[in-house]
């Protein structure tokens, strides 16, 4: 049984059908990348999985249970965390308060303290700035905060939407290093990225989304060698 299984998913965006019958799966322990151009439906797919927008058809199974109609606020306690596009940290809360928001559904104080320790060791910069309002952080720091906040819920699967968007190359490398560490810790990752080269080099498998449909899929190492991918997404 796959950890996350998407079956024939359809999503409407207003009058437009944004996702047209896509199916894919993520196995436990994998990093799976969803790549594609702007407007291909990558973000819409993630939003539908975590219940931010409703599916018009098809099924979403997480660890065997149907979560197609589960409201967004129930998802995180099931073990799925979503780092949204554009970070969306709470600007008027401090770094520490944001991180605590990430553990909103957790009741176990010791677990929360342990997770905070883990996040701070992974992102020392967040520890330094824990009492700063998160609206005052740089883009890269906000991305770290958004990832740390998601990790505070002890997720078994992490959905990440464009973590490298708008960041300087140094931060991009740092973010991808952290994704690799998250994987090494046994957390499954579904990664949406426009930076196809980076995404393919870090992931086990990938799906290429074009106008709401899956155009290509396969092992990331093979896709990196694929002519069509090289021309359309790697700019070679």
């Amino acid at each position: 049984m796959a950890m996350l299984e998407i079956e024939e998913l359809n999503v409407n965006y207003g009058m437009i059908r944004a996702i047209r019958g896509i199916s894919f799966h993520v196995e436990k322990g994998e990093v799976v990348a969803l790549i594609g151009a702007n407007g291909a439906g990558k973000t819409t797919t993630l939003h539908t999985i975590t219940g931010l927008i409703p599916a018009a058809g098809g099924r979403i199974l997480f660890e065997g249970s149907d979560i197609t109609k589960t409201p967004a606020h129930r998802i995180v306690s099931m073990g799925m965390a979503h780092v949204p596009e554009g970070r969306r940290v709470f600007a008027n809360l401090t770094v520490l308060q944001n991180l605590k928001m990430g553990a909103f559904t957790r009741k176990d104080k010791a677990e929360i303290a342990g997770n905070l320790e883990m996040v701070f060791s992974r992102f020392p910069r967040l520890k330094e700035r824990q009492n700063q309002l998160s609206g005052t952080l740089s883009g890269g720091e906000q991305q770290m905060l958004a990832m740390g906040r998601a990790l505070m819920s002890s997720p078994r699967i992490l959905l990440m939407d464009e973590p490298s968007m708008g960041l300087s190359p140094i931060f991009v490398n740092e973010i991808f290093d952290i994704i690799a560490k998250v994987k090494a810790d046994g957390t499954t990752v579904l990664l949406v990225e426009q930076n196809a080269k980076k995404a393919l080099s870090i992931s086990d498998r990938a799906y290429v989304l074009e106008t709401g449909m899956i155009a290509l899929e396969g092992r990331s190492s093979e896709l990196l060698e694929n002519d069509r991918i090289r021309k359309a997404y790697l700019g070679e």
Binding site: A72, H73, R88, V89
Partner: peptide, 9 residues
Amino acid sequence: GAASLMGIN
């Protein structure tokens, strides 16, 4: 949206 991703109803 971000609040509901934190599990806030």
